[in-house]
């Protein structure tokens, strides 16, 4: 499995190919959403939504062999694409890796100007929730 940094570098080079074309970038992000694994219907409940997102985002996590496995979904394609980027970097890793991950790709691809400030806040909430899950698993592990 590639390191967090390697995957981030991959993402950055993919976005570099898209260049400044905003429309292609948005299409690309929407397409990425299609790679999310199917989200269990029974988990599509209020407790699993991330607060602070304009669109609905559901996120759940469990631990398999000391690694955290995330599943997520959203009612909008762009948000699905955004969360799939995050999971590509952070899914199936040890809690401490997730907690310590420096997500420099966000700034390097200019996420703020792609999705605008309102969605950027939502994106930050997703990162926070992913890290909170990792922290909870780590705390449990050490208890």
């Amino acid at each position: 499995m590639s390191s967090i940094q390697e995957i981030q570098d991959e993402i950055v080079s993919e976005f570099e190919i898209l260049g400044d074309d905003k429309e292609s970038t948005i299409y690309y992000i929407m397409e990425l959403g299609g790679s999310l694994e199917d989200f269990p219907e029974s988990e599509r409940i209020e407790e699993n939504t991330i607060k602070g997102c304009q669109s609905k985002v559901w996120l759940i996590a469990d631990k398999e062999d000391s690694k955290v496995h995330f599943q997520a979904d959203s009612n909008t394609d762009i948000t699905k694409g955004l969360i799939s980027l995050l999971l590509r970097v952070l899914n199936n890793r040890r809690p401490e890796e997730i907690i310590n991950a420096k997500l420099d790709f966000v700034e390097r691809i200019g996420m703020g100007s792609i999705i605008g400030s309102q969605r950027s806040n939502g994106f930050a909430s997703m990162i926070k929730q992913i890290k909170l899950y990792a922290l909870a698993f780590q705390t449990k592990q050490n208890a």
Partner: peptide, 21 residues
Amino acid sequence: AMHPYDVGMMLDANGIAVRTG
């Protein structure tokens, strides 16, 4: 089958300002 947010975002990419939601 499209969420209004997604449509609004794509219209914005074309320089078109609309309201969604």
